[in-house]
Write a protein that binds this DNA or RNA. Structure first.
Lengths: 336, 336
DNA sequence: AAATTTAGCTTAATCGTTTTCGACAATGAG
DNA sequence: CTCATTGTCGAAAACGATTAAGCTAAATTT
């Protein structure tokens, strides 16, 4: 490993001068600076991140907290895409990504792990936001944090506009003539509450009351449950003409239930998904869904987190709400 | 941040003694060791990874090289699952995961980046294995490496048994009465060559020659291309009764093509996927496919890499081939 | 009883960097 | 000509940990 010391010996200057030259400090003459830089390049030098971190308390490393009870966020389509975009963005600015976890040897909490690794900041998504360990990390204000799809006071949040998104979907179905709409929603989270609220209010604007049996609390990414609840809805005497699902995967489960009963999508029953995942547009019929802008969410989260890291005091704590985009698809029939 | 020094002051011993006590060295008396450990716990001590890494040249950090031209490996269903399992496994042993990339500020190669971060080892998957930067990293023998689904000499490789997998699929289709089978395969990689070879040989065992127009080189995860080539196959005078695809997504593209022509799966044409992704079993008809054991692949890769890290000289360089599992599904008709 | 070993602890060097402070020479001002 | 300023550079401390080597006193051997 080639160190500053070796470059110093080669250039016949001190280690301090080499360091300053490579960091472009201005108390090194242009000539020596240039000479040092070229020999550094020639010798294949790159800094030792541990040594630098030890001295500067900056690692250029960002922690990623992405845990799901069942799967980790990695296998979660939506979050994997957000993370992918996030990763791309931070890498452009010279930061690396390290996963934060708590199932460590000597068991550390998320906060301890973050401090152990000395990450400059943490992005949190796809977790149980009531987890005491998450709260501990969020409340520890020496580490910059952005959360995705959840709002904490005094923390930057980046989120999808679930209220507008659901509104758009309801308006679309309404415009196609649907009046009896049911919503099989996800687990009880902030995101879910926003969507359910928006669903009900959007219908109320059209003077449509949503009967209790049209609002079913299910789970995200659980086609089996969606299947079950879809059958349940279809057995109502006054069954809906259009069913909304928490995500595209659940919608597929619903479609299976509809077909197994002998009905067709969208001819007999219309279906609305959420997320706009890749699969939703290659399946048939193409799903009517709301594409969340994962690229934007990831890149804005990255940008804001890095800004917070590099300008700790001047950065405003805000929420950033990203618009999604309605994807018309073919799963909602025009029954006008 | 609480350091060894503070614990030393508190316990009225030297820093060295504290370090040795916490690392369970045997030249510290049991009593002082215990005392030191409890005060360390009480004060909320955890080591500074940078300082430790600087001194020991061990980071307990593993580099992940997962890059795809289009998307990163994160959004790739199969590799995301492998990575997820890998992550879980290494975390159990106290290692963390950091992404390796080359789009860094001062542009470093993969190798330089790995050395810069001082990772103890690297797992490589889902990359262009002809990339000079990948080769540079693979050839640098001071960093332990395991590759997934690709074999290099002198490097540990963990892979799915594509030969057996394809064989099982062909045998299955054959047993269902299919004789005219076509294969729309993926890009030209080692994995693809294994599968195509196995496809052809498995049929030869049954004295079936595969006509040239039945072997089409397409791409992975590209339903549009699969759609196009499927139409092409169906226009042949002697069109196949069963079509194999490089992956489940492509199979969906193929199914769409078949349906758009007015035919049905599996009544008119049978379809075979690969991977056994989640979606393949919630779609309808459930896909006949080969589930790759992503959990096993990830955990074995982790186990072998860590063993190599901790026993550099004694670890044998081998290939580990993981069996997949045929998932019967409903997309292959019995035409006997 | 003298010599040697051992247990338990400390001292100090070291990993590779950054950064403060001071040294020194050249330059400019008065 | 003297004094202050400026431009370059180096010495040394520091970040927090590990570890070889040395020291002291007690335990053991001869």
């Amino acid at each position: 490993m080639v160190t500053l010391r070796e470059i110093a010996r080669e250039c016949k200057v001190s280690v301090a001068t080499v360091s300053k030259a490579l960091n472009d400090m201005n108390d090194v003459s242009p000539e020596t600076k240039e000479a040092i830089k070229t020999t550094a390049r020639r010798m294949g030098y790159y800094p030792n991140s541990s040594a630098r971190a030890l001295k500067t308390n900056r690692t250029y490393n960002i922690g990623v907290l992405f845990v799901d009870e069942s799967n980790s966020g990695l296998t979660h389509d939506y979050f994997a895409n957000v993370l992918d975009s996030f990763k791309r963005s931070v890498e452009k600015k010279g930061y690396d990504l390290t996963f934060i976890n708590s199932t460590h040897n000597r068991d550390m909490t998320y906060l301890e792990h973050s401090r152990y690794r000395g990450v400059d900041g943490v992005v949190i998504a796809c977790v149980d936001f009531d987890d005491p360990q998450v709260l501990e990390l969020v409340r520890y204000d020496a580490i910059p944090v952005v959360t995705i799809d959840h709002v904490f006071d005094y923390r930057i949040a980046v989120m999808s506009d679930n209220i507008q998104g659901m509104h758009d979907l309801v308006e679309y179905a309404y415009s196609k003539g649907h009046r009896r709409m049911a919503y099989i929603s996800g687990d009880d989270t902030a995101v879910t509450r926003n969507r359910v609220g928006s669903f009900v209010r959007s219908l109320e604007k059209h003077y449509i009351d949503t009967p209790e049996e049209y609002l079913i609390s299910s789970a995200y990414r659980n086609p089996e449950l969606a299947y079950k609840y879809t059958r349940q809805l279809l057995q109502l005497m006054d069954s809906p003409t259009c069913i909304f699902y928490p995500d595209d995967y659940s919608a597929i489960g619903g479609i299976n239930a509809i077909r197994d009963i002998g009905l067709s999508v969208p001819d007999n029953i219309s279906v609305v998904g959420y997320d706009g995942s890749y699969i939703s547009q290659i399946m048939s019929p193409r799903l009517t869904t709301l594409r969340q802008d994962t690229v934007k969410i990831g890149s804005v989260a990255a940008e804001k987190l890095i800004h917070l890291i590099e300008n700790p005091r001047t950065t405003l704590i805000q929420r950033f709400v990203m618009n999604g985009e309605l994807v018309a698809g073919e799963s909602v029939a025009d029954i006008n």
